[in-house]
Design a protein around this nucleic acid. Structure first.
Lengths: 340, 340
DNA sequence: AGGCGGCATGACAGCGCTGTCAACACCCCG
DNA sequence: CGGGGTGTTGACAGCGCTGTCATGCCGCCT
């Protein structure tokens, strides 16, 4: 064992009691400035670092924040976690990661586990039905919900303007002359996706286009599941001339299908960026959710709530922006050329 | 407060002393089977979970493993962390993530911080010179080093066959008729990259091709840094007909340059996969490092070492495999066609 | 002068667990 | 039948910190 230096060493070295050291560490009020200075000196000299386990045991939480996301592997969440880790490091905290694997009960388990561990706060991308999520988040620790509201009313939430972002995307396609625009995205669970569908509807409605149910595919969750559906959509005689993929995963499915069918001529806008999207042929037009901004906002909110547990709940909706890069600006002519 | 159930509650409920409960929890020997059964029953009935902070304080480590990587954002490491998290969850542990941001001293800080936190073990992708890395890893906790050896001799290491993988890649290009093959990768720091360069040398040597120093670019670390160098390489009159990118980041730089110059005709093999590489035009041929296999192996080794701290050190070198997908099979003719 | 309140500090009892050591029952052996 | 294991259990002292309460001191009011 390394014979860690403890608060007693600092007390001995500085000539104060351990309680005063504790006060200095925690920035408690009513400590003379001179005392603070001398204790700080001792701490630095001895390179003392408080033992988090002991701090927690002595009543308190760990200097740790928990991040619960669908999958750490997902580029969107990887980006979010990266920002959180970096912000946490700046304030001397660290980050426990936990994935839900898009499984309601596992999500609940993870939240409970991290809570028991004694984390100071949680950033959660919820997964599941509203009731399940609400139950899972009924824990006694600050929580910030990201990306999806899932009916949560008593927690801070940070998310994007889903409806408007989708509207912008579809409107963009309409503006480029498209009328047969497909929608891909699973609307069965999240308001997020439902909102995006609503944006799709609104844009088409405004353009006077009736929605063709054959162009709406709402069954897939993952890229692998989306792929066959995208194939089917694109292969029909009456194929769409443009596709709106309501999530990056859907987008990957579509891109894969396009490549398979050599149909680089179909316009595509994806909600959310994915790596190397600028290297596609043509480069993918997408709705930017600004994941790092979302993560930063979430971190700020969490910090605030840790300090002020009773602050009013805030539902922050961050604007998205459409980034035209090529795939969304294709004209519909190509489709006609291919029709039998 | 939730009035957490403690070991005392279980003791009372089961009629044994807290020490016996502790024994059952930790699978200690010499406990009657009947006792184990009854204690387990009480634990289940009360839904008791030991308090990790207390376990640690009472002498022991946290049921937590730390992962230190360049960046959580990097798809390669995101994949590694995802696997570790999932494996850890299976055995009731959780994962603290820490990024080095490719900074030697920060890496050391992170390793020390996690060690102080009391993690049971560490998976580290080291960054920095051999001496720095050795010093940073001189901590009193099990460590498994991944991806790069960095001169570490007293720790378990899991990495890929860098030299052979690079050889395969370059040999593949040679076999497709290329003789002017560029190398991109920073060889200034890691044996990993040096080994890959050695593989490049060997493949060219065997083919009787002299190395043209103008085709070897070793300054860049990141994709952004690689991009201008790749541009310069491809734009020269005497441009290479093929490129071997010694890391995914270098690969992205090359792809970006290729797109910019509309030079999809230059053959390319990348060491390491990156997301959507199968969607490039043409799909990217790469050397698969099998990141999840690497992560699984690392986890196995770490588990072993936690249980058997004195086990002999193991340096595991996992084979890579070349995955031809299009970009590596282009013939050199294209370059000639473009020459001025 | 006596009393009161506010500040600065310290003594001490936990927090929930594990390690150490001791106690006890039981068995085998001579 | 006594001595010496072996197997099973418990009492108790920490681990390093924080919360509670007590202490001493000073200035100020009446």
């Amino acid at each position: 064992m390394t014979g860690q230096t403890t608060i007693y060493d600092v007390a001995r070295d500085s000539g104060f009691s351990i309680k005063t050291i504790s006060r200095v560490i925690n920035g408690a009020p009513n400590v003379r400035e001179e005392t603070v200075r001398r204790v700080r000196e001792s701490i630095a000299r001895l390179d003392y670092h408080p033992n988090p386990a002991a701090q927690r045991l002595g009543g308190g939480r760990l200097p740790t924040i928990g991040a619960v996301v669908d999958s750490i592997d997902d580029p969107f969440f990887a980006g979010v976690v990266a920002v959180i880790e970096s912000r946490a490091m700046d304030v001397g905290m660290d980050v426990l990661v936990a994935s839900t694997g898009m499984d309601e009960s596992r999500m609940r388990t993870q939240v409970e586990r991290l809570t028991r561990r004694g984390v100071a706060g949680l950033v959660v991308a919820p997964f599941g039905g509203d009731d399940t999520v609400r139950k899972a988040l009924a824990v006694d620790v600050p929580v910030v919900v990201i990306d999806r509201k899932c009916g949560v009313e008593d927690r801070d939430v940070v998310r994007a303007t889903d409806e408007q972002g989708a509207y912008d995307a579809v409107h963009h396609l309409v503006a480029h002359g498209h009328r047969r625009i497909a929608f891909l995205g699973n609307t069965s669970r999240f308001t997020t996706l439902v909102d995006r569908y609503t944006g799709y509807e609104r844009a088409l409605g405004e353009a006077g286009v009736d929605i063709d149910p054959r162009l709406v595919e709402t069954r897939a969750w993952t890229a692998d599941e989306a792929y066959p559906h995208a194939l089917a959509l694109l292969a029909t005689a009456d194929a769409p001339t443009a596709v709106f993929a309501a999530s990056p995963m859907m987008g990957l499915g579509v891109l894969r299908a396009q490549q398979r069918l050599h149909r680089q001529d179909i316009a595509l806008v994806i909600f959310g960026d994915h790596p190397a999207s600028d290297l596609m042929t043509p480069p993918t037009t997408f709705v930017d959710q600004h994941p790092s901004r979302l993560a930063n906002t979430a971190f700020d909110l969490l910090t605030r709530r840790i300090q002020e547990p009773e602050a009013p709940v805030r539902d922050t909706v961050l604007p998205t922006s459409l980034v035209p890069r090529g795939s969304g600006e294709l004209a519909p002519r190509a489709a006609a050329a291919v029709a039998p």
